[in-house]
Simulated scan of single mutants.
Amino acid sequence: MRATGAVIPPLVILIISLWIFRIPFAYALMPVLGANSLWWSFPVGSGMSMLMSITYYRFGNWRSARML
């Protein structure tokens, strides 16, 4: 996707997976898991990033993006 010039949507996907999923997940489970919640937040954030990337790859308009 990035080679076609579509760089903003993957960047937004990574920002969402970090600030909407990974960090809140770690903070929410901190009382239960302690420091391990940080390590469990990585697969959760990566999984959400993967799902959003697959969705964008499947339904997004990245094929029509052109480099300047």
Rank of each mutant, 00 (worst) to 15 (best):
Y27W: 13
I13G: 02
N36E: 08
I16G: 00
A28S: 10
N61E: 14
F25H: 06
P9T: 02
A65C: 09
G60E: 07
M52S: 03
S64E: 15
G5W: 09
L11V: 05
M1R: 06
P24R: 12
V12Q: 02
M50V: 11
V32A: 10
A26D: 08
A35Y: 05
A26M: 10
S64M: 12
Y27M: 15
T4P: 03
L51R: 03
F59A: 07
V12S: 00
S37G: 04
G34E: 03
P31C: 01
V44E: 04
L18R: 05
P10R: 00
A35C: 03
G5H: 10
R22W: 08
M48R: 05
R66L: 06
L68N: 14
R63Y: 02
L14M: 08
F25K: 03
A65R: 05
M52Q: 07
W62H: 11
V32S: 10
I15W: 07
S64K: 15
S46K: 09
S49F: 05
I20D: 12
Y27K: 13
M1G: 08
F59T: 06
G34P: 03
P9K: 03
M48H: 09
A35H: 06
P31S: 00
I16W: 01
T4K: 15
M50L: 15
V7K: 15
V44M: 11
A28R: 12
V7T: 14
V44I: 13
W39N: 12
L29I: 03
I54C: 08
S64V: 12
V12L: 10
S37H: 02
R63E: 09
M50D: 10
G60K: 10
M48Y: 09
I13R: 01
V7D: 15
Y27V: 14
I13E: 01
L38A: 12
F59G: 03
I54N: 04
M50N: 07
M30S: 09
S49L: 08
M67P: 03
G34H: 02
P43G: 11
L33T: 00
Y56L: 04
A6W: 06
P43V: 05
L51P: 04
R66F: 02
P9Q: 01
G5A: 10
L51F: 08
G5Y: 09
Y57P: 00
Y27Q: 14
R63H: 07
P10D: 01
R63A: 02
A28Y: 12
L38Y: 11
Y57F: 13
A3M: 11
P24Y: 11
R66G: 04
S53K: 01
L14W: 06
W19V: 15
L18Q: 08
G34V: 01
I20E: 09
W19S: 14
S49R: 02
A65E: 08
L29A: 07
W19M: 12
M52V: 05
W39S: 13
W40I: 05
I20W: 13
G47M: 09
